[in-house]
Amino acid sequence: MVEFGFPAFLVLSAFLFACGLTCLATKRNAIGILMGVELILNAANLNFVAAARFVPTFRLEGQVFAVLVIVLAAAEAAVALAIFLNFYNNHATVNVENATDLKG
């Protein structure tokens, strides 16, 4: 029987990353894209924490970076939502295809 170690976490995190990327590529709703970003950040974070557990020199560093990523992700979501709501105010939609005001 295989013991689930570091590679198992890396594969799971790669899967979450791929899901996030698909979200970014396929969703046309701005909030859906934000969710894709959250998925990608969580995948990265899972790697950090798994490294903290399995790599002896990362025991503290992995956790520190995970905390920083969580904080930055929350900040990013707050600003992104504020922008989307403003966009919705002006265009009555959050479809990113309509965000063409700056196109020359």
Binding site: P7, L10, V11, S13, A14, F54, P56
Partner: peptide, 8 residues
């Protein structure tokens, strides 16, 4: 890439 890691 991740399967090539040595599992601690």
């Amino acid at each position: 890439a991740s399967l090539s890691f040595v599992s601690h």
